[in-house]
Amino acid sequence: MTEIRLKGVSFAYPDGTKALEDLELTVRAGERVAIAGQNGAGKTTAVKLMNGLLRPTEGTVEVGDWDTKDRTTAQLSKKVGYVFQNPDDQIFHNEVIDEVRFGPKNMGFDEARTDELTAWAIGLCGIVKHGEENPYNLPYSMRKFVTVASVIAMDGDVVIMDEPTAGQDQVGLAILKDVLDELGRRGKTVITITHDMEFVAEHFDRLVIMANRRIIADGPASELFSREAVLKESMLKPPSAAIIAQSLGLPEGIIRRKQLEEHILAREPH
């Protein structure tokens, strides 16, 4: 399985914008990591380096035992699947099922395996009923799931999702959680960019926080959510459970609803 390493990575866009400075990051094989932080911090840029859509200006990006500079984007995309922030950048077929089948087929899987992966992916993403529809006639939330399905159907070792939580209702968020769990069971390395701090608190142990072109914190979500200076610099807020816990004078480190509930029930009559 595949580990990802960024070593001393900096990146500037052709227009001169410095988007990343001196990033150090290791995501172990099979690990699940959330990346959060300020708009424009460099999150999307950082993950595009991991699947070869962008190449570092300085430093090295390693995917397993590959140095990305020695590999083509086509090679890398077989190992590292990337769900774009904007689903419309990714969708180009007229039927959902064709869109999802394209990836595994392109990977060289035979017909039977392609069918199997496609069925698995659209089932997991809750879009079976949309199989024959044109993705462009689907609401934003469903188009996003079409892109998630088409990436996981490729069965790469690493899955990166850029803002999958945007615009999702609670059913959509529950499906995303199932996707994370299932990918975990299959040993995949999963990186999720999100602005939804409740989702991070509920489903991730490790959180990487970016601000101003850098990683400014990396560790257990329960610790980072009590670091005020870090949150301030990265324009983040702690999850609601942490805010309520603080207002009730409960100990630090409560970030999930269930934890908060237990503390309240232990203390209040009921």
Partner: peptide, 12 residues
């Protein structure tokens, strides 16, 4: 229509 879907919490 969902003006804050891509925004960080403070930006929201």
């Amino acid at each position: 229509d969902e003006p804050s879907s891509q925004l960080d919490p403070v930006g929201t």
